[in-house]
């Protein structure tokens, strides 16, 4: 549906835009405490209210968007950058020991949710936003490896690949020249989905203190701060929560819309 794509892109751009603007301007300095004005509710001088230190929530949301988007984007990059070549390689060597090892390795990584990886990394190196990136990135690798392998395998069965082999092209060349362009749409769509999952995961990790550390603002940590205040200042929990929901919703809608837009076969009505 076209509407999904438009609405999704709109929502996503709002947050990307807010993140970009925050580099040059925020309504208030996001770290500035103003104890006399703490816990102000929405409306008024502070549009989205203030937290228990009197910091402006809108400013923190804008800067927090930066963290979320950066973490999720880099994590998707790691997942794609390593996962796609692995998947294409496994497909090219389908049925061989290498393929088996890559796939079993994938299954194994699936047994380590990003939170568990983050726990391990934090235990060893201490908490930071980099942890979150690595943890989510590692978990993305098998996701991309698996879908690119699956798509590549069905392409390898097609006659045009056979024709390229008859023309004497190597498996690596065929993967780049024939397979990759035909899986790009799929990767774009999956990339959008993983991006949104990355934002959720980053929020979760920051919430339990395994992600971005103070003073780097992050939506997850804003929620952790809000937890003890939830009865007296519900807006402290509502605003970052809605920010997460709307961003993720936007990305998901965009992913669905892109899938329908890029791959007309999915629009075919079946009997």
């Amino acid at each position: 549906m076209r509407n999904n794509l438009i609405l999704g892109t709109l929502l996503t751009s709002i947050f990307v835009f807010a993140a970009l603007i925050s580099f040059v301007w925020t309504p208030f300095p996001h770290t500035a405490m103003d104890i006399p004005n703490k816990l102000q509710s929405m409306g008024g001088e502070h549009l989205l209210g203030t937290d228990h230190f009197g910091r402006d929530i809108l400013s923190m949301i804008m800067v927090g968007a930066r963290t979320s988007i950066a973490v999720a984007l880099v994590a998707v990059g790691i997942g794609m950058g390593l996962g796609v070549p692995l998947g294409l390689f496994a497909a090219a060597k389908h049925g061989s020991l290498v393929d088996e090892i890559i796939m079993r390795g994938n299954d194994l990584v699936f047994a380590f949710p990003s939170l568990v990886i983050a726990i391990l990394i934090t235990a060893v190196f201490g908490a930071s936003a980099i942890n979150a990136i690595i943890a989510i990135g590692i978990f993305n690798i098998p996701v991309f490896a698996r879908i690119s392998r699956g798509a590549a395998l069905s392409l390898w069965k097609r006659d045009f690949i056979l024709a390229a082999r008859v023309a004497g092209k190597s498996a690596a060349r065929i993967s780049v020249e024939h397979i990759l362009p035909n899986v790009t749409n799929l990767l774009i769509v999956q990339g959008t989905i993983q991006f949104s999952l990355g934002i959720l995961a980053e929020a979760g990790l920051s919430y339990v203190g395994l992600g971005a550390q103070p003073p780097t603002p992050s939506w997850g940590r804003m929620l952790a701060d809000a937890q003890t205040m939830v009865t007296i200042a519900p807006h402290m929990a509502l605003v970052p929560g809605l920010a997460i929901i709307l961003t993720v919703l936007g990305l998901n809608l965009m992913g669905d819309g892109l899938r329908d837009y890029l791959d007309p076969r999915l629009r075919v009505t079946r009997i």
């Binding site: 949104s196 929020a203 919430y207 929990a237 929560g241 929901i245 919703l249 998901n252």
Partner: peptide, 18 residues
């Protein structure tokens, strides 16, 4: 479900507590 997928579970938990 589109909405459900987007909700972080710990935030949802806080709302349930509230």
């Amino acid at each position: 479900t589109q909405l459900g997928v987007a909700v972080p579970n710990f935030w949802f938990a806080m709302m349930l507590v509230l």
